[in-house]
Design a protein around this nucleic acid. Structure first.
Length: 435
DNA sequence: TCTGGGGTCCTAGGACCC
DNA sequence: TCTGGGGTCCTAGGACCC
């Protein structure tokens, strides 16, 4: 049996952990650059606010309905996610962290009443971290997703749903729109609707050959999983990434090369950090740059450049050097640029690198410097030490006008609690802290 | 003024090899 | 009426996920 634990409206729930005054109120969290709505509280959903809606389009509506709006605070969400996962780990020998807000637990061999067990998990996460979760339990991962969907949508389930009995499973599939099935997206939904397949149950009645032909082996696997045949295994150790991308829209459109160069250098540095974290090096690097395609009346420009690196590397210094050179090659004056990014590819283990006869880089020295930089930045905060090319904070940086404090990851943002002898002013609290 | 960011897997077709 | 058989590697494009 697999359990799928999914945090409800995760980013909004994270903000509410330290703002209980926002419980029962409409709250949304915006994407990077305060662009789109990417997390909504139930109350916000009730108001009809859509996932992915550009915030500027409904700014007046949000104001009118007193919706609390947050910029995304990934330091906070990442930390709370980690705490949720740690708690879940206590309930199973096999935990697969599937995304920032979801995990699969293998419950096989745990001789328990699944419903009671799931309730315990749910209560424990709530008590330890303060994040509400929904739990689906079933014999396959895809069915656990189905169960999770029910746990969330049907109020009487109170956040937990177990699907084990074949008749119960059939009933659930008959009541599930085919587009809601994990792995069936917009295109496949359209295809299936065109042949009168509307529910997960209809899909299960299709001919295997047809599914294989039109939806590849991936579709066939989904079908088998729905039939109760487990094809998807637990992934206990996250596999190393094969491609790593760091890209951002700029806080404001950029025209000059200098600030874009700082941005690209910073993205290259992030890629290098991600590579080192998974003990990999990259053999190829791509830089891309483009204008805002939404502004149809402005001149458009989009280009990318791929460079093959002479020797695979994860050195920030080296990657920045290639990335900025690539940027210089594709940058053209006279455009208003919106976004740039760095992608590293041909990723392999850092300790198995094909050298080059003509290599003049002292790789051991780079590696030693990177180790020191990573250690310092881990201790004192990101970018305590950085390469000068990254600049010191320009207009290209993200717009984050409604950022909440990093309650759990930054000393200066830690929450202050006044003593019970009476309500102390902020200044008094600071004095107490100083003492 | 304002529209996110980061990934994976599969298939078809072409180039090439013996 | 008819044109061998068996492979690999690479790329582009399309689907999906959070």
């Amino acid at each position: 049996m697999f359990a799928l634990v999914d945090c409800n409206n995760f980013y909004v729930s994270c903000e509410r952990v330290f703002r209980p005054d926002l419980n029962d109120r409409p709250v949304v969290v915006l994407s990077n650059n305060d662009g789109c709505i990417i997390s909504r509280s139930e109350e916000a959903k009730q108001l009809g606010i859509k996932m992915g809606e550009p915030a500027f389009k409904i700014a007046a509506f949000l104001e009118r309905n007193q919706v609390t709006v947050f910029s995304s605070n990934y330091a906070l969400y990442g930390d709370l996610s980690h705490r949720v996962m740690q708690t879940l780990g206590q309930f199973t020998p096999e935990l697969e962290v599937y995304s920032i807000d979801e995990a699969f637990l293998n419950l096989t061999g745990l001789p328990v009443d699944w419903t009671a067990y799931a309730r315990t998990i749910r209560e424990t996460v709530g008590r330890h971290v303060g994040i509400p979760v929904s739990i689906g339990v079933a014999p396959t991962k895809v069915l656990a997703k189905v169960a999770n969907h029910r746990a969330k949508k049907i109020p009487e389930q109170k956040g937990v749903c177990v699907l084990e009995d074949p008749e119960e499973i059939a009933e659930a599939l008959k009541n599930l729109a085919v587009g809601e099935v994990w792995g069936i997206g917009r295109q496949y939904k359209k295809l299936l609707h065109s042949i009168q397949v509307h529910t997960a149950w209809d899909f299960l009645q299709l001919d295997d050959d047809w599914v294989r032909r039109r939806m590849t082996v991936v579709g066939l696997r989904i079908k088998k999983e729905l039939a109760g045949i487990a094809c998807l295994e637990m992934e206990l150790i996250p596999p190393a990434k094969k491609v790593i991308c760091t890209s951002r829209s700029f806080g404001e459109d950029q025209t000059a090369l200098a600030p874009i160069k700082e941005a690209v250098a910073t993205y290259a540095a992030r890629c290098a950090e991600k590579l080192r974290r998974q003990h990999s090096s990259a053999g190829m690097l791509m830089v891309f740059l483009h204008t805002n395609s939404f502004k149809e009346d402005e001149p458009q420009y989009a280009r990318n450049l791929v460079c093959k690196l002479p020797v695979p590397t994860n050195s920030t210094i080296e990657l920045i050097r290639y990335a900025t050179a690539a940027l210089r090659a594709i940058y053209r004056e006279g455009y208003r640029y919106k976004k740039a990014g760095v992608i590293v590819m041909e990723i392999g283990p850092e300790d198995r690198i094909q050298g080059s006869l003509f290599d003049r880089v002292d790789r051991e020295k780079h590696a030693a410097v990177m180790r020191k930089i990573d250690a310092l930045n881990a201790k004192y905060g990101r970018d305590t030490i950085k390469v000068a090319a990254q600049g010191v904070g320009g207009k290209w940086k993200l717009r984050q006008e409604r950022l909440s404090p990093c309650y759990t990851t930054r000393w200066s943002d830690i929450i202050k609690v006044a003593a019970h002898t009476g309500c102390r002013s902020h200044n008094e609290v600071l004095k107490i802290k100083a003492r």
